[in-house]
Amino acid sequence: MDRIEAFLTMGGYGEFIWPAYAVAFAVLAALLAWSLRELRRNERTLRNLQPNGPDGRRE
């Protein structure tokens, strides 16, 4: 228990270290979620525009 507590408090710096890691990974996760959602939305729109299959060639 003491070791877990020592790890979480980080010698008194826990209140700075944990938010730093949380912000970093929250921003990265948000970028990933946003980019994937945009890709799926665009791919869906493209499929609806091309009823003849997902990779309808048209050149």
Binding site: L28, L32, E38, L39, N42, T45, L46, L49, Q50, R58
Partner: peptide
């Protein structure tokens, strides 16, 4: 991780370009 995001976003942009052209 940047590379993963970039590849996803470029793919998305190329799909968007196709949509505009269509």
């Amino acid at each position: 991780f940047f590379t993963v995001l970039l590849l996803i976003r470029v793919r998305s942009a190329l799909v968007a370009r196709k949509i505009r052209a269509l």
